[in-house]
Nucleic acid binder design. Structure first.
Lengths: 359, 359
DNA sequence: GGCGTGGCAGCAAACGTTTTCTACAACCGC
DNA sequence: GCGGTTGTAGAAAACGTTTGCTGCCACGCC
């Protein structure tokens, strides 16, 4: 069913149908009404790919994220989608899952579908891939980083602010041995957070020496805690590069009967929704996913719909700030007990194999 | 840059370019090589919307989920995307966020973009909306429910199996007052789980009377626990309609110093990834998101790429089964203490307002 | 009353592909 | 050597829209 079918039934030309559908004001109200009636009766929906072809605009925005399974991102995707719906855009979401092949395929798919703009909310995208998009003059939005030219918006994130608050908060609780569990260091965002930690520690006269590397996932938090606990100058507080890491830390601490926050204070980063529901609720640095998505979308829309002549090179900045919950407390008097790693609880999960007779 | 540009530079017709690009074997290898060279040099990518227009197939699958922010779904989306990439499809994901308006917009967007099939992994989609898709002969895949006609695949989920295991597991731990926190009862899936609970309880001679209603979110779990704790015949175990509810329950229990599993056993449903990382790790009924996505994708692909004549009305079924972790234990001797609701910890979260001077 | 003008509908081209059909060349067999 | 057959490239139509341009009609003005 196409526009011609409508035209036939409404006894007008396809041009008139098109104009009626698109609410072009020069069309006679009576004709328009006739068209709408037929459109409605037949349940006609315009074919957006035909429209995109002639218009040269697809009304699709690409959204490239690291992994949609990381709870940080779904919130962004949701907000982004809400805004897209409001503005009559579609979104094409792809995960890079830290795989160069997938990054490449992400970019290729965006280009093939002729998206009108791409928000790159993943880190560690290769320069040459980005060049592919830039070459085609696809408007881009980056987090943190990206070339400093018109048509490309950068969202700067003020990591320092929130991390300084976190460090000062811990220091105020008399912690001196504060560890940092970094993210994968090939990611600029992870690097930036670690640097912010170093700066903040130095500012208050502590040496930022307890730094181990995680993977921004729960597993990395778990092994990082084991690593930290095996040290002779074990920390009394640990600041994590993201919330997932912090959740892993708390989970591992649970296995070793390390009490949070009594024995060990934990601070996360991101303030994902789950942070409010961990046990104990996680003190963390908020980096509003909602705001981030809003900024990214606005930036993209601005690039696409405004005159490129206006060359307005907006500076977008997202601030971060500490949210206090209950995973931090006064430093224990003499550091926490030394037997943690021995008090292992049973771990692992078993699965019931069959349908189960009554037991 | 289009196929004609390539044709001009390779000194062949557009037909040959098209054939070369699509690896049609009848094209002269030498010509093909010439075309590929130009394609490569110019960084040409075919315009999929033009292709879709003439082919009548968009190579886009729609994926309608309830809320992408519910951790159950991102796993599905990821697996679905992986399969899509492998098979050269794109996915168009929309969240209904339990909003009729958004469901409508979801369906409209799917139709406008001319998707080749839709997996409806949300519950409570209105019949008339589905009719819109069926009317256009869009292949559909449903969870649980859906019209029983060719071109529409239903993934039946065996809730009973897993829930029976859960109930029997709790009974084996000498629990007799087992509560159930249901999901929103206008959802068929929530209803089915509750029914499975009732059946399972009855099977072992317990009466399924302790049933309260949640919302499949953490907040609902929290208030449901409060409700249950205010009862005179307070439960010693609670089975939740999904894991988010269970997380809410454990979080609320924490606030009231109800120990899990010592005072209260908790069982979830879904086995989201986070279930392994809660404190304590959550015993739950697994409903593999990975499998679910695989089945949905396969069903869709089957509907789209196979002869409609084959009429193979595959039955897809997903079984569920209990995963034991550490949120369940022997029932406390005389029920747990009665003072829970009074031993309230401080709650809520505060936010540090400004950049923070040293404290 | 004639001409000019404004308003509005329709024709047709264009968007970038795929594919059918035609055409041409080369080769083979008789 | 010629007709037939096979193999391969190109011309052109088609997919479903939008929109510039043309042209018609009616109205108003002189």
């Amino acid at each position: 069913m196409d526009i011609r079918e409508i035209a036939r039934r409404a006894k007008v030309s396809t041009a008139t149908v098109s104009r009626a559908i698109n609410r072009v004001p020069t069309v006679d109200p009576q004709l328009a009404k006739r068209v709408w009636k037929v459109v409605d009766e037949l349940g006609y929906y315009p074919n957006t790919q035909a429209r995109a072809l002639v218009l040269g605009r697809s009304r699709i925005f690409g959204l490239i994220v690291s992994e949609i399974t990381n709870p940080f991102f779904p919130e962004i995707v949701q907000t982004f989608e809400n805004l897209a719906v409001e503005n009559n855009y579609e979104i094409l979401v792809t995960s890079t899952v830290h795989d160069p092949k997938r990054m490449e395929s992400s970019v290729r798919r965006m280009i093939e579908r002729r998206v009108d703009g791409v928000a790159i909310l993943t880190f560690g995208m290769e320069e040459t891939l980005i060049e592919h998009l830039r070459f085609r003059k696809v408007p881009l939005v980056f987090i943190d980083v990206g070339p400093d030219v018109p048509g490309i918006a950068n969202i700067r994130i003020n990591y320092q602010n929130g991390i300084r608050q976190a460090v000062q908060h811990l220091a105020a609780l008399r912690h001196t041995r504060i560890a940092f569990i970094a993210g994968p260091l090939h990611l600029k965002s992870a690097l930036a957070r670690r640097e912010a930690f170093k700066v903040s520690m130095t500012e208050i006269g502590l040496s930022p020496e307890l730094i181990v590397v995680g993977d921004h996932r729960m597993e990395g938090g778990m092994s990082a805690l084991i690593e930290l606990e095996s040290l002779s100058n074990r920390p009394t507080a640990v600041l994590c590069s993201n919330d997932m890491t912090a959740i892993g830390v708390m989970r591992e601490a649970y296995d070793h009967n390390i009490r949070i926050p009594d024995d060990l204070s934990v601070v996360g980063f991101d303030d994902i929704r789950m942070a409010e529901f961990t046990i104990p609720p996680l003190t963390t640095v908020q980096m509003s996913q909602h705001e981030l998505a809003k900024i990214a979308f606005r930036a993209l829309l601005n690039e696409v719909e405004c005159e490129p002549s206006s060359q307005q090179h907006h500076k977008y900045e997202l601030i971060t700030s500490l949210v206090l919950r209950r995973s931090t407390a006064l430093a224990p008097a003499g550091g926490h007990a030394t037997t943690h790693l021995k008090a292992n609880r049973a771990t692992g999960s078993r699965k019931i194999p069959a349908a189960g007779s009554r037991s």
